[in-house]
Amino acid sequence: MSGETALPPGFAALEPFVAGWALPTTAARAARRGEATSDEREQFFAAASPLVASALAHLDARPLHALDPAEQRLLNLLLALAHVGLAVEMQGPAEARHALGRARMQITRAVADAEPGA
């Protein structure tokens, strides 16, 4: 466990996914969904989706602006899962073709990119 990939206690199983998926903007997360292989998406989804409830319970205990770097990484993983979940749960084998249409829809602004208010 290194400082760059550390996650809050209880979420160490997700640390191998931090480098690839804990991305800071909505557009970057959406793009990563499209660039990843289906194996990468499925492995991330399989590891992270069972931890959604416990991760939210941990993060919701404090306001967004008070999250420490490890918690922020965990949140960014959850937000990446929002995109990956659509690929794995909804699109399945149609995901590669679906990415072509999605590339046409350019994300120009996202509330999650804003700095959390104090």
């Binding site: 993060l59 919701d60 967004l64 995109h83 509330v111």
Partner: peptide, 20 residues
């Protein structure tokens, strides 16, 4: 603005799902 992790996740998902 997003006030909690849950709210931020729901909003991110709503956007991504609609875009899909």
């Amino acid at each position: 603005e997003d006030a909690s992790a849950s709210q931020r996740l729901a909003r991110e998902y709503a956007l991504a799902q609609l875009r899909d």
